[in-house]
């Protein structure tokens, strides 16, 4: 009897050990997947947490600096080829990265069907899903409201470094910068996120930086041209004109390109 009790106790202890190790292993896997940003849908608590911490440009997303803005192209759920110009556009673009399978995204699909929908930041709304090979086209066709521009492009997800849906990027085409980005659990939160990025001056400062870059480039160009003109003047003053053999000490003169290299 004692032997039986001892044996049972050992078996129960082993089973408890097994269950604990399985639970730990499961937790490790979940943590690794979460850290890798895998999974198309963040649960509500994660969504709320990210929304609270990763909204606007001055701080950028939690994972690092915002990616540069890029034009996007792909196909629509109806099979049209489509390209959306973002760079240089005077109208900002609000990219909404959604999927057909994400439950949180349902609210956005429904919101986009509302004809009274106001897009914050005077932006043009563009929904971006993954490409047809990574997304259910038939499910999308059921979800996409009429008049909503949808671009199916996994390349766009990669270019904007989007790890999961829903995710939003407020892009200023004039400066070519993502001035606000993050995830959100509802449209009001997206509106707050964009309005904050505008109110905080992220859009204005992005445009100022862009203008300063262009001014520096123009000054460099002018300086190069002035330097070139001064060099030409000095050479002419020394009696050296274009084609002068002294400019080509190695060859004795300008080398004509071979019209027939073969």
């Amino acid at each position: 009897m004692t032997a039986l009790v001892v044996t049972l106790a050992v078996v129960v202890a082993l089973l408890v050990l097994l269950v604990v190790s399985l639970l730990r292993s499961h937790a490790e896997i979940l943590r690794t997947l979460h850290d890798a940003g895998l999974g198309h849908e963040a649960d509500d608590s994660t969504t709320a947490r990210r929304a609270a911490t990763s909204q606007v440009a001055p701080n950028g997303p939690p994972s690092g600096p915002s990616p540069e803005a890029r034009d996007i192209s792909g196909v629509t759920p109806d099979g049209d080829a489509v390209a959306v110009g973002i760079l240089g556009s005077p109208t900002p673009t609000l990219l909404s990265f959604l999927s057909s399978g994400c439950l949180t995204c349902r609210e956005f699909w429904e919101a986009f069907g509302d004809p009274r929908l106001e897009v914050p930041g005077d932006a043009r709304l563009v929904v971006v899903t993954m490409s047809p090979e990574d997304e259910s086209v038939s499910a999308l066709r059921r979800l996409v409201p009429e008049q909503t521009l949808v671009v199916m492009s996994t390349a766009a997800w990669e270019a904007y470094e989007v790890a999961g849906a829903p995710y939003f990027a407020y892009v200023d085409g004039m400066s070519g910068a993502v001035v606000g980005e993050g995830t959100a659990s509802n449209w009001d939160r997206v509106r707050d996120m964009v309005n904050e990025s505008v109110d905080d001056g992220a859009l204005a400062s992005s445009r100022r930086r862009s203008a300063a870059r262009k001014t520096r480039a123009a000054r460099r160009h002018l300086a190069d041209r002035e330097r070139e003109a001064r060099a030409d003047d000095a050479l002419l003053a020394a009696g050296i004109s274009p084609g002068d053999a002294r400019l080509y000490p190695a060859t004795g003169g300008p080398v004509e390109p071979d019209p027939d290299p073969s």
Binding site: D71, I72, V75, G79, D80, A81, A83, G85, L87, S89
Partner: peptide, 24 residues
């Protein structure tokens, strides 16, 4: 640059251009 290709027509668009190839 945006690349468009569908229905036997292709185009490469400069930065900032919109494009659409659809069927009627």
């Amino acid at each position: 640059m945006g690349a468009l290709r569908a229905h036997g027509i292709a185009a490469t668009l400069p930065a900032g251009w919109d494009g659409r190839i659809s069927v009627r």
